[in-house]
Amino acid sequence: MTKATEPTVWRKASRSSSTGGDCVEVADLANAIGIRDSKNPNAGHLELAPAAVRELVRRIKAGDLDL
């Protein structure tokens, strides 16, 4: 987990497209998972509880969401 004094380390999600710039970055924040658009990192980010991220990934993999 990231401490307040440590810089946030963002990494490109492993399933993000390597072409076309459609990339999502994720970071382990103090009590949440950060998600942001790598094309526009200064636009802000979402903070989701780890359980919410697991559910989101599960639903994407199951085809429940039209992405």
Rank of each mutant, 00 (worst) to 15 (best):
A51C: 01
P41E: 07
G21T: 09
T5C: 11
A30C: 14
A43F: 07
K12F: 00
D64N: 15
T19L: 00
A51R: 14
K3P: 04
T5M: 08
P50Q: 10
V9P: 05
D66Y: 12
L65G: 13
T5F: 14
S18L: 03
T8G: 07
R11F: 05
A49E: 14
D28S: 12
T8K: 06
S14D: 02
D22A: 03
V24G: 05
A49R: 14
A4P: 08
A51F: 08
V24F: 10
G20Y: 04
T8M: 06
L65E: 12
S38E: 14
A62H: 14
T2Q: 15
A62K: 14
L48W: 08
K3C: 04
D64Y: 13
D64H: 15
R54L: 03
K12S: 00
R58P: 02
L48V: 05
S16A: 02
A32Q: 12
N31I: 11
V53S: 04
D66T: 15
K3M: 09
S18A: 09
E47L: 08
R54F: 03
W10D: 04
N42A: 13
D37E: 10
N42T: 13
R15W: 12
P41I: 06
A32H: 13
P41V: 10
I33T: 12
P41F: 12
I33Y: 05
K12L: 02
A30P: 12
R15M: 04
S16E: 02
E55A: 15
A52D: 07
A4I: 12
A27S: 09
D37N: 11
D28H: 11
E6A: 09
T8E: 06
V26Q: 01
M1T: 13
M1A: 09
P50R: 11
G21M: 06
V57P: 03
D66G: 14
A62R: 14
L56C: 12
A43T: 13
A32P: 01
L46K: 02
K39Y: 02
A51S: 13
L48K: 11
K39N: 09
A62L: 10
A27G: 04
K61T: 10
A51H: 14
S16I: 00
G44P: 10
R15H: 10
G21H: 12
R11M: 00
S16K: 02
A13T: 04
N40E: 12
G20K: 09
D22H: 09
I33S: 01
L48D: 01
V53K: 09
P50T: 09
E25G: 02
P50A: 03
N40T: 11
A49Q: 14
A51I: 05
G20S: 11
E6L: 07
T2A: 07
G44W: 10
P41A: 06
A62Q: 15
L46D: 00
R36F: 01
P7N: 11
S17D: 04
V26G: 00
D37V: 00
A13Y: 12
L48F: 15
V24A: 07
R11E: 02
V53L: 08
I35S: 09
